[in-house]
Computed example of a mutant assay.
Amino acid sequence: MWPSAPTALTPDELNFLHTDPARGRKRWSIIAAVTVVCVLIPLLLPLLSDSMRTHLAGDTEQVSAEVTSVQPVGNCRGGQRHSVAVTWMSDGLEQSGAYTTCEDPPQVGASVTLWIGAGGNIQTNSPTGDRIGLIALSVALGLLAIGAGALAVVPLGRRRRRLLRSVNHALDAVGPVETKYHGRYDELHIRLAGAHVAGPPATRRAKVTLRSQFGAKPIGRGHRELRGAWQAMYVVRADQASKYSVALLARGPQRCWVEFRNRGGK
């Protein structure tokens, strides 16, 4: 069983933190793979359609067509879908066809610019415009994947490095605390058990850095079982002007290292 007043990281916790850089590289490799998939999907999916592949290759004919009728055919998100019938001249012969749109349809008799494929497929955007749009979507999804991955990996790595630097600092006992989750499992709301002040009880919002249990390997993520009462919270004695504080929650065989932002810290 853990000592009643823990003063440092356990050997298993130290080993977990020292091997964290290797885990970090693995996480970045996963993020890189997801980013590649996000970049390629918008570029590859249109190629599954023969008409779109032909259009993107520039093998469609640009024509000026006349709108002959406009009919509502269903609903779009936030609007109505219309079928637009058109006629155009190709090689001296009049051709006809129709396309659907969720945008405001043109008026009957209006002239519209279209791109016609060999099989009569109608495209309303130019090949260049569609290529630019696909590339922009691909880049946006790639940046989104990198940003989301960085938000998950970078703060966690920093918290673990700060915890590792606190190994030689003493711990000050705060007292019994109660915790609850607010959304994600890696974020706890901590308050002193039985503490009451004027207005809502004072709480600290903390991020879970790692949790461990006597006789088991440490785990670097939160879990619903961290909710509830803890026998004690110990705060690492460090520079009072620092931006973050590291704390240890303890109850029976369970330990949970958390970090919270200091009020007024630089």
Rank of each mutant, 00 (worst) to 15 (best):
I122Y: 04
I122D: 14
I122M: 11
I122A: 11
Q123E: 15
Q123D: 13
T124G: 08
T124R: 10
T124N: 09
N125A: 14
S126K: 05
S126G: 14
S126E: 08
S126F: 00
P127T: 03
P127Q: 09
P127M: 05
P127F: 00
T128L: 14
T128W: 05
T128N: 12
T128K: 05
G129W: 01
G129A: 15
G129R: 13
G129E: 15
G129M: 07
G129N: 14
D130G: 05
D130E: 15
D130L: 13
R131K: 10
R131L: 11
R131Q: 14
R131S: 14
I132V: 15
I132C: 07
G133C: 04
G133H: 03
L134E: 13
L134N: 14
L134Y: 12
L134M: 10
L134D: 11
L134Q: 12
L134T: 05
I135H: 09
I135W: 12
A136R: 06
A136K: 04
A136L: 08
A136C: 03
A136Y: 00
A136W: 00
L137C: 12
L137R: 09
S138F: 02
S138R: 05
S138Y: 00
S138M: 07
S138P: 01
S138D: 09
V139D: 08
V139T: 07
A140D: 11
A140S: 10
A140E: 12
A140F: 02
A140G: 13
L141V: 01
L141Y: 08
L141T: 03
G142L: 03
G142D: 10
G142P: 10
G142W: 01
L143D: 10
L143H: 02
L143A: 15
L143K: 06
L143I: 11
L143Y: 06
L144G: 09
L144N: 04
L144A: 13
L144V: 05
A145N: 07
A145Q: 04
A145F: 00
A145E: 05
I146C: 10
I146N: 04
I146R: 08
G147S: 12
G147A: 11
G147E: 06
G147L: 05
G147P: 06
G147N: 06
A148F: 00
A148I: 05
A148L: 13
G149E: 07
G149D: 13
G149C: 11
G149N: 12
G149K: 08
A150H: 08
A150W: 04
A150S: 15
A150D: 13
A150T: 13
L151H: 08
